[in-house]
Amino acid sequence: MVTANDLVKTYGKKNEVLAVDHVSFSVKEAEIFGLIGPDGAGKTSIFRMLTTLLLPDSGSASVQGFDVVKDYKAIRNTVGYMPGRFSLYQDLTVEENLDFFATVFETTVAENYDLIKDIYVQLEPFKKRRAGKLSGGMKQKLALCCALIHKPTVLFLDEPTTGVDPVSRKEFWEMLKRLQSQGITILVSTPYMDEADLCDRIALIQNGKILSIDTPENISAAYPDKLFAVKANKMSTLLKELAQFKNASATYSFGEYAHVATDSKQFEAGNAPVEFEKELEDYLADHGLENIEIKEIKASVEDCFIKFLK
């Protein structure tokens, strides 16, 4: 269990940079809790405060009932932390790194092998290789093993999948799910919105402030507008014309589609979404676009995030 209560952290000589702005949240036992936000949102600062590496300016936080300031020693024994940057010893081998961290936490690799077995089997062929010579995905797996080797009850993962290929990312999340099923509480931060759906609950953060905390489903469901995905032959012209479209509250590109949001109140008045689609299609056709494809979609977490930022 992790709780943060009104945490504040400022940087700079005159505390002029507000990195974490009165953040409060609580994470339940054996939950995957995601901190979702762009670079510089304050995710790492929150993690560093919770892992006792950074002192909060004000507010309090506790991990497994231990206060992050007073009981920092106890916290260090119970949490596993995987920093955003690969920070194992690059000049030691896979095996030596693992042994080192096991010994440091006064345990052995054999003792907690069950916990890391699934991950370690993939690393096993490279166990004599220096950590610095591993691929990005392998490095992350090793870092996860080292963070797990002392059987932590809470795991903090700071952007564990940044710079990792899509296949390894998927594998990584499967591993997290397995760890969760063993009762480990996991706090994970990520700048990737698609990973948000894999968390039990997420907190959207921007500029040190939490915008919303809920399950990904609820956050998506709470999206107030109606959303349409639009595709046409020329993407740049499409975006330009959409921006001019009167009835759109927001338009932005989203992969191969452009998303168009429109006030949902108009549909309560009897307008059917089909009519809106027709209106939009005619408008785009008038402006010389071809192969127009419009469909109504459900908002994703990313759409919600974009909405929050506006």
Partner: peptide, 13 residues
Amino acid sequence: EIGTIEQINVSPI
């Protein structure tokens, strides 16, 4: 510089 001290600092060393 490499950041390994982070890992050391969250440990009971």
